[in-house]
Design a protein around this nucleic acid. Structure first.
Lengths: 215, 215
DNA sequence: TAAGTACTTAGTGAAAACCCTAACAAGCCA
DNA sequence: TGGCTTGTTAGGGTTTTCACTAAGTACTTA
């Protein structure tokens, strides 16, 4: 019997996963955890085989941290990340934190059970959608499969200028703050426009926000 | 028997909601829809009492549109909005589009059933969390409790210019598209800057995005 | 050492954004 | 009717943005 722990603060999800698993003969849901603390507590007191972890639990950073904690503290426990997000960078980050599988929340019953059995048998599980997203995430192309621009790789100065533009500073103010000439600042802004493929700062800010590069 | 239609493209959610409802004696799930088109099709062919609508289905704008369509086309059908988001502006927009209830996806079984029964009896349903969020969002001050600026009231021309700026158009291009001089466009942009209290278009776009005034 | 690459720093000049002021029309109200 | 407000349309003049070009630094690699 594969022992599963569900970690998600969204009750509807927990119920849904449990419902999807309920018919299975070789998998059982042993624990349902609605907080990070309860996940830690349960894992230290009961043996588990697989953790189904909502990566936005309660926020993405916390979910990633918990994923890392689990895989490092309990190497025998396999983590499958569950999320609404299908962007390549997040998938990569999750895998780096030790997750053995990645499922979107529109997954099917068959797929969920397949994934649980796969990671239990020391395999990884990524379906066609996920692998397709990862394959199409070539740093060369400007757009991903979903039509969303990819995050350009920025130099330190470019990141600095982008952050200051997002604060509403003028070129003069940025130059004063960075101890360089206004012309230097202007060049970095131009580089940003080019890297993002936009014609002006207004669209630069819009794109950077969509890519979560600025608060 | 209260007839319920679930509209959500996330399978786990649909399962979860169905599982939460399954024990009930007076409520039954009649339909599960994973696309906007199937919702429309089912509503035109079968009578329903309550629609549980994921407002990010597949994106927020589409979800809001579908909510409006349902409440206007089928006045007897009550819509309950389901979402992960708990920000005041979205709740208000959903209510404006005709939703009779608003639930976060971490809702409990009791609350879900309560909400369905309430809207079926022509009542509205908003729990303490939601009402608390709405109460703390006072339109008087320039800043809401969460520190987010409030939406300024825009004239038709200003809205038009804002949308065009967000598309990356220059003044000349906007002027050509709007059949006015560049100077007229510039004035509207200046008005936008003043109303939003920002010094340049970059911050204008940033603020407008935070206020969900542009896609 | 030399060549190559990536990043930073500026200069020039044209285009766009921005600020201030003002005219005109439509609607409202005493 | 006259006065008031709101929205739209512009002009003049300054500041900022942007494209193009190019030099200097640092760090690799042959």
């Amino acid at each position: 019997m594969i022992r599963v722990l569900i970690a998600d603060d969204h009750n509807v999800f927990v119920e849904g996963i449990e419902s999807l698993i309920s018919g299975s003969e070789d998998i059982e849901v042993r624990e349902r955890c609605y907080t990070v603390e309860s996940v830690m507590e349960r894992l230290s007191n009961a043996e588990m085989d697989v953790v189904l972890l909502d990566i936005s639990f309660p926020q993405i950073e916390a979910g990633l941290g918990l994923c890392e904690y689990i895989t490092q503290t309990y190497p025998t426990v396999k983590v499958i990340a569950l999320t609404m997000h299908d962007d390549a960078s997040l998938i990569k980050r999750v895998v780096k934190k030790g997750a053995k599988g990645y499922l979107l929340k529109n997954t099917t019953k068959v797929e969920l059970l397949q994934a649980i059995r796969a990671v239990y048998q020391e395999k990884q599980y990524f379906n066609e959608t996920i692998t397709h997203i990862l394959l199409n995430d070539e740093p060369q192309s400007r757009k991903s499969a979903a039509g969303v621009a990819l995050k350009p790789k920025l130099t330190p100065r470019e990141s600095e200028v982008l952050a200051l533009i997002a604060q509403g500073l003028t070129t003069q103010q940025m130059a004063a703050q960075m101890f360089v000439s206004a012309k230097a600042v202007e060049f970095h802004r131009s580089s940003l426009l080019m890297k993002f493929g936009v014609p002006n700062t207004a669209l630069l800010i819009k794109t950077a926000m969509e890519l979560h590069l600025i608060a």
